[in-house]
C-alpha cells in the first residue's frame, strides 16, 4: 500500500515515519555516503518540516517501509533553491503545479527484482498523485549515473542545465512532465499493476 503522508496525518504513523528516516540513513548516508545531516539512526534535514509531503510504500501487514519519496512545494525554499541553484542554467522552475522530488529511497533489504517493483509502484503512485492534484511537472536533482534508467521510463524528461561534479558525483537537474499519457508510457520494465494509493484517511470521517 502507498500512503500520502503530510503534516495532517504524519503523527498518526510514527513507526512508519521512523522506518522511513532509518532507511534513508541506510541508503543515503551509509551506502551512498552523502554528506547530509543525520544521527546514528536517522537521516532528516531542514526540509522535513510541516510543508513536506511523502509518498510511502509499505507492507500493510508488517508495517515494513519499502520505498518512499519526499515531495516539496517549489514555491517555498527547496533543494533547488537552497542547495543546487547552480544546476539550473535556465532559472529554477517554480510554481503551484510543480513539485520537487527528493530522497527517492528504495529499502535496500530486498533483492533487485523486488526493488525494481517497489520503484515502479512508487513512480506510478507519483504520477497518479500528480494527475489527481493538478501537478504538471516534477523537478529533481539526479545523479547522472541514473540518467539512462530515469530516461528509460519513456516519459517526457528534460534537463534544466548542464550537470556538475558535486562531491565527486556528477549531478544534474531534471524536469519530468506529467499528463494522462504518462501512465501509458510506463511499460516494459517500468510496468506494475495498479497501485493501492491512499491519499485521504478513510477512517477519520467515520470517527467524526
Amino acid at each position: 500500500m502507498i500512503r500520502l503522508l503530510n503534516h495532517q496525518n504524519r503523527s498518526a504513523y510514527p513507526a512508519l515515519v521512523r522506518a522511513m528516516h532509518a532507511d534513508r540513513k541506510r541508503v543515503f548516508v551509509d551506502m551512498l555516503k552523502w554528506a547530509i545531516p543525520h544521527d546514528t539512526e536517522f537521516e532528516r534535514d531542514q526540509f522535513d518540516d510541516g510543508r513536506a509531503e511523502y509518498l510511502v510504500l509499505h507492507d500493510p501487514a508488517s508495517g515494513e517501509h519499502l520505498a518512499s519519496m519526499r515531495l516539496l512545494s517549489t514555491e517555498g525554499p527547496h533543494l533547488m533553491t537552497e542547495v543546487f541553484p547552480y544546476l539550473c542554467a535556465g532559472g529554477i522552475l517554480r510554481g503551484p503545479d510543480i513539485r520537487e522530488i527528493t530522497r527517492f529511497c528504495i529499502a535496500p533489504r530486498r533483492r533487485a527484482a523486488d526493488r525494481r517493483l517497489a520503484r515502479n509502484m512508487l513512480v506510478r503512485a507519483m504520477v497518479e498523485y500528480g494527475l489527481l492534484t493538478g501537478i504538471r511537472s516534477f523537478t529533481a536533482a539526479c545523479n547522472m549515473g541514473f540518467l539512462s534508467e530515469v530516461l528509460s521510463a519513456g516519459w517526457r524528461c528534460h534537463p534544466l542545465g548542464m550537470p556538475q561534479v558535486v562531491d565527486g558525483s556528477l549531478i544534474g537537474a531534471l524536469r519530468i512532465d506529467i499528463d494522462p499519457d504518462t501512465l501509458r508510457m510506463l511499460v516494459g520494465s517500468w510496468s506494475c499493476d495498479p497501485v493501492d494509493l491512499r491519499l485521504v484517511e478513510n477512517d477519520t470521517a467515520l470517527a467524526a
Binding site: 540518467l147 539512462s148 530516461l151 548542464m162 556538475q164
Partner: peptide, 16 residues
C-alpha cells in the same frame, strides 16, 4: 559533460 548528456539522451531515443 555535454557528451554525457548527449550520450544518455541519444541512447534513449535510439532505444525507444
Amino acid at each position: 559533460l555535454m557528451a554525457n548528456m548527449v550520450g544518455s539522451f541519444a541512447f534513449q531515443a535510439a532505444r525507444s
